[in-house]
Amino acid sequence: MKKWMKIIGALFLVGILAVLYVWFFVYNKPHRDYEKADPDHILAAEELFLKYRQDKALADSLYTGMVVQISGEIDKVESPDSSLIAVFVFDQGMFGDEGVRCILLPNQHTKLKSFSPRDKITLKGYCTGYNDTDVILEKSSIVIEQ
């Protein structure tokens, strides 16, 4: 085989590998695994709520878009449609209870059902911000403390 053919072949192979890499690891890269992610912040559920209440802009800069781990006494579990939401209540408003709402990952549903109101619980999730009534943690999972 001539040298120039080997070079073209090698370049072609590199091109194919580059396309495959971009396809699998850039364009179709998986979502972050929030269950395995280390928390960026650890605090009490009520503290998180109060921080957003007191200074939303500051709290947004600290917690929104981060993995936040909170602890507290769970007040209730809501199950609209197929989702399950752990709710910490710290105030009342026009929308009813206000506090921190943790939307559980589907694989956490069975674990959450074993908790009763007033039980202590630790959860972590992706904080999407404060909507003037509640702080929302999406993709939440229950943290089993060692």
Binding site: K29, P30, H31, R32, T64, Y126, T128, G129, Y130, E138
Partner: peptide, 10 residues
Amino acid sequence: LIKSFEFEKA
């Protein structure tokens, strides 16, 4: 909340 939107692709 805008960050609560979920897409199929990350």
